[in-house]
C-alpha cells in the first residue's frame, strides 16, 4: 500500500501544475490609457510548456491578493514572452498595475479555446472590438497580418467609450495606414476635439465593405455589444456560424473544475471562451443563465 501512495505523490506533482503558478518577471509595465496598462512578462526559469494561441487567457497572480483571468494581448509568436493588457477595476488588477520592472508575477495557463485564425484562412476577416475587447483580438490581428496573403479583406472596427479610452491608439493608426487593412474607430460620446466617428460600433458594419458569404467575424467586447454586432452582421448576410464571440464569466480555476464560469452546459474557461454565435445565441438570451 505504501508503494502505491508514493507512486501517487509523483502523480500529484505531475498533474498539479495546473493549479500552481509559474513565476514570470515583469519586463515592462506600460500605461495604455487612464485605467488600462500592459504587462510584458518573461519566464523566470522554465516557461509554460504549451505554446499559446490568440484568444486564450492566463490566470495572473498578484502576491497575496489573488488571481484574475486575463487574455493574452501580445504576439503569440514571441513565445515564451507574454503580453497582457489589463484594466484596473478590482483589487487584483490594481495590485498588478503597481508591479514594477523586475517584480514577480504568477502565471497559470494558457487556457481556453482560441480564435479560429487558421481555420478561417481564405476568407474576408472582420474583427469587431468594443472597449478592452480589443486586447484579446490583438494576437489574432498579429497572426492574420503575419500571414496576410492567406486572407481576403481584413477589416477592424473598434468602438470605445470616449476618445481618451481608445486602446492601442498608435497601433491602430499604424494599421490604418496599411493599404491591405481597413480600420475604423467610433466612440460613444465626445466633445468637438474628436474628428472621428461618434456612434455605436454595429453602425460601422452597415457600411463596411466585405463579402458576407465568405466572411469570418471575430467579435469581442461587452456581451450586449456582441449581441448587437452579431445582429448587424446577420443583417449584412454573415451567417451565425461564421461569427465568433468571446464570452466572459467568473473564472476561478481556469480548468473547468470550480464551476464558477458555468453557463448552461458549458464551462466557459475550458469549453470557450470563443464560440460561434450560433452555439450561444439562444443561451445568452436566457435571463440570469
Amino acid at each position: 500500500m505504501e508503494t502505491t501512495i508514493e507512486h501517487n505523490c509523483e502523480q500529484v506533482v505531475n498533474n498539479n501544475h495546473t493549479m500552481t503558478p509559474t513565476i514570470y518577471r515583469v519586463e515592462k509595465n506600460r500605461r495604455d490609457t487612464h485605467d488600462t496598462f500592459t504587462l510584458h512578462l518573461s519566464p523566470e526559469d522554465q516557461p509554460l510548456e504549451t505554446v499559446y494561441e490568440p484568444g486564450q487567457f492566463n490566470m495572473l497572480y498578484a502576491f497575496g491578493v489573488g488571481e484574475v483571468p486575463i487574455s493574452i494581448s501580445g504576439d503569440t509568436t514571441e513565445w515564451p514572452k507574454l503580453v497582457h493588457t489589463i484594466r484596473a477595476v478590482g483589487s487584483v488588477t490594481n495590485a498588478l498595475q503597481s508591479l514594477a520592472t523586475g517584480d514577480s508575477i504568477g502565471v497559470r495557463g494558457p487556457y481556453g479555446k482560441p480564435w479560429p485564425v487558421e481555420a478561417t484562412k481564405g476568407k474576408d476577416i472582420i474583427l469587431v472590438a468594443g472597449g478592452i475587447g480589443l486586447a484579446p483580438l490583438r494576437p489574432a490581428i498579429y497572426q492574420i497580418l503575419h500571414n496576410r496573403e492567406s486572407y481576403g479583406k481584413v477589416i477592424l472596427l473598434y468602438g470605445s467609450r470616449r476618445p481618451l479610452d481608445i486602446l492601442f491608439r498608435k497601433e491602430l493608426e499604424k494599421w490604418r495606414s496599411r493599404l491591405d487593412m481597413f480600420v475604423d474607430v467610433t466612440v460613444d460620446s465626445s466633445d468637438r476635439n474628436w474628428n472621428g466617428n461618434v456612434g455605436v460600433v454595429p453602425r460601422l458594419i452597415d457600411t463596411a465593405n466585405f463579402d458576407p458569404i465568405d466572411t469570418a467575424a471575430f467579435v469581442c467586447g461587452p456581451e450586449v455589444m456582441m449581441r448587437f454586432t452579431a445582429m448587424a452582421l446577420n443583417k449584412r448576410g454573415v451567417s451565425s456560424d461564421n461569427i465568433y464571440v468571446s464570452l466572459e464569466r467568473n473564472m476561478k480555476c481556469g480548468v473547468g473544475l470550480c464551476g464558477h464560469c458555468q453557463m448552461s452546459n458549458q464551462f466557459i474557461c475550458k469549453d470557450g471562451p470563443v464560440y460561434t454565435y450560433s452555439q450561444v445565441r439562444e443561451t445568452v438570451l436566457i435571463r440570469e443563465i
Partner: peptide
C-alpha cells in the same frame, strides 16, 4: 484537467 488530490 484532473484533480490530483482527489485522484490520490
Amino acid at each position: 484537467y484532473k484533480d490530483s488530490y482527489y485522484q490520490l
